[in-house]
Amino acid sequence: MEEAKEGFEPKIIGFTCNWCTYAGADLAGTSRKKYPPNIRIIRLMCSGRLDPMFVLKVLLNGADGVFIGGCHPGECHYIKGNFYARRRIAALRTILKQFGLDDRVRSEWISASEGDKFARVMKEMAEDIKKLGPNPMRDKIL
């Protein structure tokens, strides 16, 4: 892995479910856990609402990373929304892999009590994507 690009601050879009990961992010906040400011969170009700098109769209818009957070398998507020989400994300990443974009997409199961995990993942992701460098689509005319 090459070294982080100088001065590059990645833009990461996070899709989180309302019940677990968003609450986990809140917990990171209440416990004052600092993490890099690269993430912009979009709240969905369930990771099941994550239409892979959102990810494609935002990657083509030039986002450097996409984070998807949901409840742990088996703990979905809507019983199985995250099971479907998992299949969709796996399919999507398999497709993105062909174009070297899969490393920019990461999904994690983060529960409402895992504020630390949220912050840790944010940190890791910011670092990983810094190493990857900017999304080649960033300044493209689409």
Partner: peptide, 29 residues
């Protein structure tokens, strides 16, 4: 990744409407 071959059997569910409780964790990050 879904061990699915399309068109084998009309009764087999499409991959996106089914799931296993434990699977694919290595394909997510």
């Amino acid at each position: 990744i879904f061990e699915y071959v399309p068109g084998e059997d009309a009764e087999e569910p499409l991959p996106f409407i089914t799931y296993e409780e434990e699977e694919l964790e290595d394909k997510l990050r």
